[in-house]
Design a binder for these strands. Structure first.
Lengths: 136, 136
DNA sequence: CTAGTAACTTGCAAAATGCAAGTAACAAAC
DNA sequence: GTTTGTTACTTGCATTTTGCAAGTTACTAG
């Protein structure tokens, strides 16, 4: 009966996915997390140079959306490690489609990690479980 | 030697694809064209109600990027039918990944064309060749 | 107490978005 | 032949988002 969720634009799955990650930065953050980056500093150091205020805002949004989760890996000072949730890892398929389209349709583009080798597959997540939570 | 293309942010295929279609509207236009819509009016009539100035701007950008092409299907007054190029049709894989992620991770979302049936596959392009050039 | 570092936050200027209204070219009605 | 209607845009402008730079907080090292 209560299939009356409020969608921002329409009930279309594409439209609603775009409302979550359809901007120029969110999926790059997801990409970096898939590649094993974990901290704010590591994410900020990516070649695209995401502005730090945007990075902070995106981390909050992605966490609110259940795509990433933040866990303190250190108490004093408190430092957070960001990792993808299952939902976030599922975005890997979207990333893969984007990377394929880019490589085939935008000359000169590469997959991060390889420099020009068209053979190498993009590295898998490899999210190191670094015991982030001594929180109890 | 001249692998020195100028990329806006980095050489990453994902980043450059997002620079082309990484906004809230472009991929919805591609979706509609995949579904067989062809005219400005049909595109504007989609459930998301894209603002008309944005639609006009996106059509220009997508055409400049070689993702769509405009062909006059009538002379007086001149009216254009928009269709996906091969490059644009290749974005279908990205759309498919987005639609799958959305349906599995955002409750209530659907694929346009089906109402709630989880079995139905999203309809293929079905671009009707409507003889766009019956000028005489 | 001064320097350095990681992780954010804040202050704007500039750009993108979105709503509404306006314009242009024509067909049909009157 | 002037008004009405339709399609395809265009323009104006307020609001929102982005991006650059600088500031702040919480520490460690010296």
């Amino acid at each position: 009966m209560n299939t009356r969720e409020k969608f921002a634009r329409s009930a279309c799955a594409v439209a609603n996915t775009l409302d979550l990650v359809g901007d120029k930065w969110s999926l790059l953050v997801v990409r970096d997390l898939l590649y094993g980056k974990r901290t704010y500093g590591e994410l900020a150091a990516s070649p695209e140079h995401i502005p730090t205020n945007i990075l902070a805002e995106r981390l909050k949004r992605l966490e609110a959306a259940g795509i990433i989760s933040a866990a303190a890996y250190q108490e004093r000072p408190v430092r957070y490690a960001y990792t993808l949730t299952k939902k976030g890892r599922a975005l890997g398929d979207v990333l893969l489609a984007l990377v394929r389209w880019g490589r085939e349709n935008i000359p000169g583009t590469v997959v991060l990690g390889e420099t020009a080798a068209p053979d190498a597959a993009p590295p898998r997540a490899a999210v190191r479980r670094r015991r982030p939570g001594t929180t109890g």
